[in-house]
């Protein structure tokens, strides 16, 4: 079998311990639920808290990531401000890929939620967003996206060339180029029967971006309605691009 490119091997090593992440988030949410009746969060509020805690893990991952750790904090912040919601959405999507059930959603806590329950309880916009994510899951499933490709795509999301005013633009470009080359090499070598898998994956990434932009707008709208718990990383990131 062909080799796995060095970049991808390194990224695989940097993947967080899922059980640890899950345990931390579950503990945090249980603490929320232990509060008095008047302080307790709504279901939506809990989902926001869950996303907020997942973001913490994403930042932890980015911090230790190759190339990223070479950047100054200012540039690190710009990259994450650009892609935080994409990384959240992609994390959700990959979880569903592994979960492998069209009719239910697997949360980072390990809880499984039926699509019918989401349809019944979530507003129409949120329901639409979740359905669109499920569609993307199906597309990626038919493309046979594997873990090696997942970590590479995650890295490509982080090192987006869309970000302006970077101090070390050259390093970001180098990271992008290396990751693209690795993904091309990997897909061509391991899926020779799957014509153009590299380009197909990048097309799906664009869809992840579009979906995450919609999700951000939805969340911002909910925030303006006072429904999103405040003073947390999620709200900060939401505000970062909206001056």
């Amino acid at each position: 079998p062909p080799d796995i490119p060095e970049v991808i091997l390194k990224l695989l090593q940097l993947e967080p311990d899922e059980a640890q992440v899950k345990g931390r988030i579950v503990a945090c949410l249980q603490q929320e639920q232990g509060k008095g009746r008047h302080e307790r969060l709504s279901t939506f509020g809990l989902m926001c808290k869950m996303a907020d805690q997942t973001l913490f893990s994403i930042v932890e991952w980015a911090r230790s990531c190759i190339f990223f750790k070479e950047l100054e904090v200012g540039d690190q912040m710009k990259l994450l401000q650009n892609c935080w919601s994409e990384l959240l959405v992609f994390d959700h999507i990959y979880r569903q890929l592994q979960h492998g059930k069209e009719q239910s959603v697997l949360l980072v806590t390990g809880q499984e939620v039926d699509m019918s329950a989401i349809a019944a309880q979530a507003g129409s916009i949120l329901n639409t967003l979740v359905l669109r994510a499920q569609e993307l899951v199906l597309h990626l499933h038919s493309l046979q996206v594997d873990r090696q490709e997942f970590v590479c795509l995650k890295f490509l999301i982080l090192f987006s060339l869309d970000v302006k005013y970077l101090e070390n633009h050259a390093l970001v470009r180098e990271a992008q180029e290396k990751a693209n080359a690795a993904l091309l090499e990997y897909t061509a070598g391991h899926y020779p029967h799957c014509a153009d898998k590299f380009r197909q994956l990048l097309l799906r990434l664009a869809e992840v971006r579009a979906l995450s932009m919609q999700a951000e707008e939805y969340l911002y709208h909910k925030h303006l309605s006072g429904e999103v718990p405040c003073n947390n990383l999620l709200i900060e990131m939401l505000h970062a691009k909206r001056t």
């Binding site: 913490f56 930042v59 911090r63 904090v73 690190q76 990383l233 900060e236 990131m237 505000h239 909206r242």
Partner: peptide, 18 residues
Amino acid sequence: KKNNNALLRYLLDKDDTK
């Protein structure tokens, strides 16, 4: 003040003593 992203900066800057 809302958008100086202080928490993100702190998370990126902090020292891990592992």
